[in-house]
Design a protein around this nucleic acid. Structure first.
Length: 749
DNA sequence: CCTGTTCGTCCGGATTCGTC
DNA sequence: GACGAATCCGGACGAACAGG
């Protein structure tokens, strides 16, 4: 594939005085077009893009390589085949720039000037195309030098020949054509033995020995068996029975690799149907592809076939009921290519249908159930049997369904062991792309002589680091979820929030289990990457983690926010929140961490003893849950208000934050928390109970308004916010946990 | 009864050799 | 060189069995 550049000449016209030239109009260029993807329709799209009134039906298109001349090199650009010519030309001639001319269609009775020129060029080329077509042919049975008398009446095939003349000739030769100099000699390879025979007519009976089996079949056939002789095969001959228009959708016309006349090509991507026909001449990229297609087709036909000949070069297929059915397919390799072609085709069964086709092999059944298995990995065997019966009226035994499910599972899940072994390469590639990407792969070595095993894996991308340092808010959500593949494990993930309220994945890790050890490993790596600042970590909590850590909830201090530096803003009256636990100490100061017995596998960063454990087990990472954490709870709401506040923080009205300002879920998830606190708490017990938090010293960072710093500050004990009933617990918690080590220490006290 | 597993059988692929 | 026949071996298959 190469990149080509196309210059479009539009809105002008051809003038001949006496040389042909294009006058007036506009010119625009399109660069970097993949030659493989270049098409007639892409050209049209570019023209429409440039001029929305462009009407393809009212113009003729012409193309030419950029160093050609209009008088000699202009060619019609009528469809995709012309586009393919251009692509081929670019590759063959290292000429990657083309001109496309848009010419208004001539009125009735008038001829396009370009048409006159191009027509002359085509005529001249067609006169000699057969000769040129043979230049690459290696047909060996010809004995004299006469040009083969091949004639195609069909326009399609003329087009095919038209394609052909193009290929073996270089640019210079085409110019010779253009000048009506039919001297191909300079461009033809002189006198190779093969080529010297190319034009010789076939000597009948020269091939000695065994007759071609295909011919045998033709003779002995008795029935509508269509045969291709070796001569037809080698010449890519297409007889009258070749009905391009009747091809099934699963096939396409294409030129073969040598740029010869179009052949049928089997398209494995298209859906096989009962109406599919294995036409003689149809080509397959491999014998395996042919066999799979045959089996698939016969499953649909509810017939059973067998491969009576099946080796590297050929495959002969007959019906299982060979005695009563004349079904026969023979596919064999095209000489000196890797392509396989159907040489014999009698693809109609004379036998009756059967409902227990063995052609419905386990591998085929696997493909049938693949989609359903993706959604339902525990699909039952009888469901598989029923599925195949419903779709194809074929009964398969349970054992086949069992194996099919095994195969399908393997396809769906992939070979995990192989994927794990690719981690080294993946890491190396990430490092190659950017040295700032962090990849940590921990290997577990069970013992000497034993194979090392996957331990842990951590990834943090350079871009994410930059984003959290420079653009995002200093809040980081942490969570973990179970991996459900063959080997299990836990995925730990850290996400940030950018100024647009979007989640920003920061880092992720795969660890063996959620434990203090694994979380601290993850957190240490994360802090190494994002830098030591005062970050605010927000996490959910797990059941076991809170055992023994339940402590009286910190009541809210009376509301008394004061910031002398900031102007006062009017406040909306709000009912004071009732403390949930009347026995709870009223001390507004940071609570001293209770001494709790935290099992080793508890995550340390969550241990703020103020909530009731109602957390769910982790199944999936739920971004909405994090949204709730950030915006539904009393403390996060305070934070969110401050995040979005353009006024000083302590003058934020004590009202609900409008969803448009703060809620990334556009208010869908947001629950009212002012007013009756108990009701509000009930309504969002899940999210509030998940909140554990928090570690930071200085929560500063870009909020929505970068000019308004976030002020949940500041130095020890000086912040009036401590007396704010909304901010109290948050700041207390924040202040008391200045570093991750503090958190760990507290956890283990 | 349903589901999953085991084991013996048989088919098909690979290879070799002989013939045309 | 192309094709057919013979042989060997691995894997897919189905029957039988075990477990829930």
């Amino acid at each position: 594939m190469v990149k080509i550049k196309v210059r479009f000449h539009t809105k002008g016209s051809f003038v001949k005085d006496p040389n042909l030239r294009y006058e007036g109009g506009d010119l625009f260029s399109v660069k970097g077009i993949d030659s493989d993807k270049w098409s007639y329709f892409e050209a049209r799209d570019h023209l429409v893009e440039k001029d929305e009134n462009f009407d393809l039906t009212s113009v003729n298109l012409w193309w030419m390589n950029d160093d050609g001349t209009l008088a000699e090199d202009i060619k019609p650009f009528k469809d995709d085949r012309d586009a393919m010519k251009m692509s081929k030309f670019a590759i063959d001639n290292d000429d990657f720039v083309f001109e496309i001319y848009v010419e208004p269609k001539a009125n009735k009775g008038q001829s396009s000037k370009a048409f006159v020129v191009a027509n002359a060029l085509e005529e001249s080329s067609e006169e000699s195309e057969y000769e040129t077509d043979d230049t690459n042919d290696t047909y060996e049975d010809s004995t004299d030098g006469s040009v083969r008398d091949v004639h195609f009446d069909d326009g399609e095939e003329e087009r095919a020949l038209d394609d052909d003349w193009f290929e073996p000739l270089n640019h210079e030769a085409r110019r010779n054509f253009a000048n009506h100099e039919l001297q191909l000699v300079p461009v033809l390879e002189p006198e190779s033995p093969q080529k010297s025979n190319l034009n010789k007519p076939k000597k009948k009976g020269k091939t000695k020995g065994r007759k071609n089996p295909v011919e045998d079949e033709c003779e002995g056939g008795g029935g509508p068996i269509i045969c291709i002789t070796p001569e037809q095969d080698k010449l890519h001959f297409i007889d009258d029975g070749y009905e391009t228009d009747e091809l099934d959708s699963a096939s396409e016309v294409d030129t073969d690799g040598e740029g010869k006349r179009p052949m049928l090509k089997f398209n494995p991507d298209e859906t096989m149907t009962e109406n599919f026909k294995f036409k003689q001449g149809m080509e397959f990229s491999s014998l395996q592809q042919f066999k799979e297609a045959v089996l698939k087709h016969n499953v649909l036909l509810m017939r059973e076939v067998k491969f009576i000949k099946n080796d590297a070069d050929r495959c002969r297929v007959v019906c299982q009921k060979k005695q009563e059915c004349n079904y026969l397919l023979l596919c064999s390799r095209v000489v000196r290519t890797t392509t396989f072609r159907v040489k014999t085709s009698k693809g109609k069964h004379d036998c009756g249908k059967r409902f227990d086709s063995k052609s419905a092999k386990a591998s085929w059944v696997a493909t049938v159930i693949l989609d359903r298995l993706k959604n339902n990995p525990k699909m039952k065997l009888n469901e598989i049997v029923a599925e195949v019966r419903t779709k194809f009226s074929i009964d398969i035994p349970a054992t086949r369904a069992f194996r099919a499910r095994q195969i399908a599972r393997k396809i769906v899940e992939g070979d995990s062991s192989k994927l794990y072994s690719l981690l080294w390469s993946y890491s190396a590639e990430l490092r190659r792309v950017s040295l700032g990407n962090t990849c940590k792969l921990e290997i577990d070595r069970p013992g000497p002589g034993l194979q090392p095993r996957f331990g842990r894996y951590y990834v943090c991308f350079e871009g994410c680091k930059q984003a959290i340092r420079n653009a995002c808010r200093p809040f980081i959500g942490l969570d973990g979820c179970h991996l459900k593949n063959q080997y299990g494990g836990i995925l730990l993930i850290a996400v940030g929030r950018d100024p647009n309220d979007q989640y920003l994945p920061l880092a992720f890790a795969v660890v063996e289990t959620e434990s203090k050890d694994s979380w601290s490993w993850f957190m240490n790596l994360l802090l190494e990457d994002i830098g030591e600042r005062r970050w605010c970590f927000i996490s959910d909590q797990q059941k076991g983690r809170l055992e023994g850590s339940k402590a009286p909830k910190v009541p809210k201090a009376p509301k008394a926010p004061k910031d002398p530096k900031a102007p006062k803003a009017p406040k909306v009256p709000k009912a004071p929140k009732a403390p949930k636990d009347p026995k709870a100490p009223k001390a507004p100061k940071a609570p001293k961490a209770p001494k709790v017995n935290v099992p080793v596998d508890h995550v340390p960063v969550d241990n703020i003893p103020n909530v009731v454990d109602t957390s769910d087990t982790h199944d999936e990472i739920d971004p909405d849950m994090l949204a709730e954490i950030l915006f539904d709870d009393e403390v996060p709401e305070m934070i969110s208000e401050r995040l979005h506040c353009s006024a000083p923080v302590d003058h934020v009205p004590n009202v609900d934050v409008p969803p448009a300002m703060s809620d990334p879920t556009n208010g869908k998830k947001r629950k009212k928390i002012s007013g009756n606190v108990e009701d509000a708490k009930k309504a969002k017990v899940r999210s509030s109970d998940r909140l554990k938090t928090l570690e930071t010293k200085n929560i500063e960072g870009p909020g929505k308004d970068p000019n308004t710093p976030l002020v949940i500050e500041d130095d020890e004990g000086d912040c009036d916010d401590v007396h704010d009933p909304k901010i109290g617990p948050c700041v207390q918690a924040i202040r008391s946990l200045t570093t991750l080590d503090d958190i760990f220490r507290r956890m283990t006290q």
